[in-house]
């Protein structure tokens, strides 16, 4: 996996909540059995008109938003199916960072990202950043006022710098384990296989039928 340290890129807004994986990569592209070529299908049904030409109304097709690598969106991004194709499409389109807000709903805090999607992002070197709604509103405001706005996402420092005048800096939290993983671009399976003796030892006394000790 490609390590993630400091990323400098252009922001693009996608001002919608509950963007599901069916929208990120529609099912007709899930029949492909390779791991590449998904970028062109990202947000396909929103991004293209029926005749295959780009839909000028779609956010990422608007002037100043082409070529963006940092996506700012709304809560529960990536909900729905577990299809990793959604993350492959995001990554292969060129997006390396997605920013979404958590939301307060009654007494509960609703996360910015769906669980499996966020997990899949980690496996593909895409950084998911959760901020408060107020902070995300600030980013939306900045990018609406200044289409093509650049930002620097610094994983070691856990900061986002918006290159507005004057610059604005936001801090973010990240799971320490995931941070190390992204910084070093590790291969999960190789890492786990280092524990093979433990797995074998576990299997000696574990019964997979009643799922308890033998």
């Amino acid at each position: 996996m490609k390590p993630f340290t400091i990323h400098n890129g252009q922001l693009a807004p996608l001002d919608r909540a509950n963007v599901d994986t069916d929208a990120i990569i529609p099912k007709q592209f899930l029949k492909l059995i390779g791991r590449s070529g998904f970028g062109q299908y990202l947000f396909h049904d929103w991004r293209y008109l029926a005749d295959g030409t780009p839909n000028p109304q779609f956010e990422l097709n608007k002037p100043g938003h082409a070529g963006a690598s940092i996506l700012v969106t709304r809560n529960n991004f990536g909900c729905g199916s577990s299809r990793e194709h959604a993350v492959w499409a995001v990554a292969q389109y060129g997006i390396r960072v997605i920013i979404a807000p958590w939301r307060q709903h009654h007494k509960d805090r609703l996360p910015g990202f769906a669980d499996i999607f966020r997990n899949n992002c980690g496996k593909n070197g895409v950084l998911t950043i959760e901020l408060s709604e107020a902070e995300v509103d600030r980013i939306f405001h900045a990018v609406h006022t200044q289409p093509g706005l650049q930002a620097t996402v610094d994983l070691p420092q856990q900061t986002i710098v918006l290159h507005t005048t004057p610059e604005q800096t936001l801090r973010f939290e990240v799971d320490p384990g995931l941070k190390q993983y992204l910084l070093r671009g590790l291969d999960d399976i190789a890492l786990t296989l280092e524990q093979e003796a433990d797995i074998t030892a576990f299997e000696q006394h574990h019964d997979v039928q009643c799922a308890g000790g033998r």
Binding site: V87, N119, N120, K123, N124, D188, I189, I199
Partner: peptide, 15 residues
């Protein structure tokens, strides 16, 4: 549910 990277991880390691 898991993504395809984790499918591969479970196939290879059963964990």
């Amino acid at each position: 549910g898991i993504g395809t990277s984790e499918v591969e991880h479970v196939l290879a390691t059963q964990t």
